[in-house]
Computed example of a mutant assay.
Amino acid sequence: MLSAFDALKLLKDEGCADNVIRHCQVVSEIAVNIARDFQKKGHKVDVQLVEVGALLHDIGRSRTHDIRHAIEGASIGEGLGLDPRIIHIIRNHIGAGITSEEAKAMGLPEVDHLPISTEEKIVAHADNLVMSDERVPLERCIQRMRDRGMGEEAIQRVQALADELGSY
């Protein structure tokens, strides 16, 4: 498993901007806190996977800043031979995931991009709580989704993910 230091080096080596790297660091800090909370409650969670996955979740922003950054990031991860669990975190981190129907409408590969593992869910949720490099309330994230014309189904998934993981 990569270390946090190695993950940050990968972001820099792939050409991610400093603001993207800072965003990833804040998401990682929040995700690790959520993961540790989960552990304290008796849930099994790989905190190191959460930390590294959260650091690398936006590596695709080295190529694009649109919705395809998750697909591009997964492609980068595959090319680098990253652990498949990290690649799943990168691919499935947007919102609370994207269904195959939504993916098709967005011009993405027509498969589900939904977070399945606890680690994937934690990183997706933590990412929802960070705008730029600032932690924001979930309500602000949801309002931003509405302002951007996101569908109600996607918004409901974000809320359901937050409910599943508990108030954080």
Results as ranks from 00 to 15, higher is better:
Ile142Phe: 07
Arg68Val: 00
Leu2Trp: 09
Gly77Lys: 03
Gly53Pro: 05
Gly15Pro: 01
Ile21Arg: 04
Gly73Trp: 00
His23Pro: 08
Asp112Tyr: 01
Arg135Gly: 09
Ile34Gln: 05
Asp133Trp: 12
Arg140Tyr: 08
Arg144Tyr: 12
Val20Pro: 04
Ser167Thr: 15
Ser62Leu: 03
Met145Gln: 13
Val111His: 05
Val47Tyr: 10
Arg146Cys: 01
Lys44Trp: 11
Ile71Ser: 02
Ile67Glu: 07
Asp6Met: 10
Gly53Ile: 09
Lys121Leu: 05
Pro115Glu: 02
Arg91Phe: 10
Ile67Gln: 05
Gly95Thr: 00
Ala70Asp: 05
Met131Leu: 13
Glu152Tyr: 10
Val136Phe: 04
Ala54Tyr: 02
Asp13Met: 09
Ile122Thr: 08
Thr118Ile: 15
Asp18Leu: 10
Lys9Met: 07
Arg144Trp: 11
Val32Trp: 08
Met1Ser: 14
Lys121Gln: 14
Glu134Val: 11
Ser3Gly: 14
Glu139Val: 11
Val32Tyr: 04
Asn92Leu: 05
Leu165Tyr: 08
Gly151Gln: 10
Val130Phe: 10
Asn33Ser: 15
Tyr168Ile: 13
Lys41Met: 14
Glu110Asp: 12
Ser167His: 12
Asp147Arg: 09
Asp6Lys: 15
Ile30Met: 14
Ile90Glu: 02
Ala160Asn: 12
Ile98Gln: 05
Val26Cys: 03
Ser28Trp: 06
Pro137Ala: 13
Cys141Thr: 13
Val136Pro: 01
Gln159Thr: 12
Arg91Lys: 14
Gly149Trp: 05
Leu80Pro: 01
Leu2Phe: 09
Leu49Tyr: 08
Ala126Ile: 08
Ile142Arg: 07
Leu138Cys: 00
Ile155Gly: 04
Gly95Trp: 11
His113Phe: 12
Met106Cys: 03
Tyr168Pro: 07
Val52Ser: 06
Gly60Cys: 06
Gln39Ile: 13
Leu165Gln: 09
Glu164Pro: 04
Val158Phe: 09
Asp147Met: 06
Met106Ile: 04
Leu11Gln: 03
Leu165Lys: 07
Gly60Pro: 04
Tyr168Arg: 14
Lys121Met: 08
Ile34Cys: 04
Gly97Ser: 08
His65Gln: 14
Lys104Gly: 07
Gly53Gln: 06
Gly81Asp: 06
His88Val: 06
Ala17Gln: 15
Gly60Tyr: 01
His65Gly: 12
Arg22Thr: 12
Ala54His: 06
Leu129Ala: 06
Val20Gly: 00
His69Met: 03
Val130Asn: 04
Gly151Phe: 07
Asp58Val: 07
Glu14Val: 14
Val52Ile: 10
Gly15Val: 03
Ile21Val: 15
Leu82Trp: 00
Ala160Gln: 13
Asp6Cys: 06
Asp58Tyr: 03
Gln25Arg: 12
Ala4Gln: 10
Arg36Asp: 07
Val111Met: 09
Ala96Pro: 03
Asn128Met: 14
Arg63Tyr: 09
Leu11Ile: 06
Arg140Pro: 05
Ile76Arg: 00
Arg140Asn: 11
Arg140Trp: 15
Ser132Ile: 10
Glu29Gly: 09
Leu49Gly: 01
His23Ser: 10
Asp6Ala: 14
Gln156Met: 13
His43Arg: 12
Gly81Gln: 05
Lys104Cys: 10
Gly81Leu: 02
Leu165Asp: 08
Asn33Thr: 06
